[in-house]
Design a protein around this nucleic acid. Structure first.
Lengths: 190, 190
DNA sequence: TAAAAACGTTGATCTGCATCAATAAATCAA
DNA sequence: TTGATTTATTGATGCAGATCAACGTTTTTA
């Protein structure tokens, strides 16, 4: 059933009673996306937190020259939102697009924050999510600041080989913040 | 008195009773640093969270070629720790050094986490801290991924002019992840 | 307060990766 | 299935910013 993965995801991370879990789950609604569908509007605040049941989301921002830079992918069994905007209420600066047919569950920002006050396990769950997001983000920042393109690629191969297996070279290159030509060349030299 | 700034910092951010606040404060101990003193050991986990009363900390990591990259500065009235290690318990990958004579208060990691379970306002305070750290980090990542050196410098001037006023060019350049020569040149062209 | 060290600026040269272009291969759409 | 679009590779060229070097200025240290 549609909520199986989400239930498991939550109960794997925090201790929560069945009744409380059901309250949480009751605020999630399904959403189906076609390939290449975009689910947010730049300039508006982020109003939803998504859970990926199936498929994959790509979160990216635009440079002034119009080029895209990938910030993050969200594969199956991960939460995704534009967290900066979700937290601060500031307008979004990044797009979220399905890179294949994707099945989501989402909760509204209002419901999400309301649950934090009502369900202590949810506050703990959120803290966990924030910590994980911070760690991931920082490691990515460190990689950009200290490694060249080849080193970043090797690190990706080591830490997240499924990225390279599942995504096109173009998307991998974009995630590494290099051109696809550069990725093609550095791969031929390894 | 030494705890005035910290008290204000906390009560500005969360609602907390005097008794609970005093419990929190009682776990903080003072620490004085000389200029250029380093307060952590790479390879060990981060065991303390610091609050800067006076002075300034610089957090940086080393590239394989031995060059330093500044991750963050912590001026007066900010908390600082190597949060990835503090969260995960993994060994530290970054140094923290006082760039001038600095006066700190610190709480041990154990005490910090114990307070989370005992004092609900502290859990809220931590959530707040995590959110802020995430937002700052993400904006920095976005700046690196989408802007060239001149744009990054202009953004810094706009958002954090006191960085440029207070820090040497060498440190500003390092924070922007460019050489001091490059910073010198781009400044002369603005 | 003198010697030493660190900092800031400018010039010359080098390099990693971007961009542009051409072509072949793979994928998509009707 | 065929034509159209997108992707992957390889070559040629350009450029932002690194590195090395020289020199004057400021700061630190003894």
């Amino acid at each position: 059933m549609m909520y199986t993965q989400l239930s498991k995801y939550i109960t794997d991370r925090v201790a929560i009673g069945d009744d409380q879990l059901n309250v949480v789950l009751s605020h999630f609604k399904p959403l189906m996306l076609k390939k290449n569908e975009v689910i947010n509007i730049i300039g508006h605040p982020a109003r939803r937190m998504y859970f990926v049941n199936k498929g994959c989301l790509r979160v990216y921002f635009l440079k002034v020259d119009g080029n895209e830079v990938t910030r993050r992918f969200a594969f199956e069994n991960t939460f995704s939102t534009s967290l900066v905007s979700f937290i601060s209420g500031e307008p979004l600066t990044e797009f979220t697009k399905a890179i294949e047919a994707t099945e989501l569950l989402y909760i509204s920002r209002d419901d999400f924050y309301r649950l934090l006050d009502v369900i202590p396990a949810w506050e703990k769950f959120y803290r966990n999510y924030l910590e994980f997001a911070y760690v991931t983000n920082t490691k990515r920042l460190q990689s950009f600041a200290t490694q060249d393109a080849t080193e970043r690629y090797k690190l990706l191969l080591k830490e997240n080989p499924h990225y390279v297996l599942r995504l096109s070279n173009k998307l991998v290159a974009n995630y590494l913040n290099i051109s696809q030509e550069a990725l093609s060349r550095l791969k031929s030299k390894i």
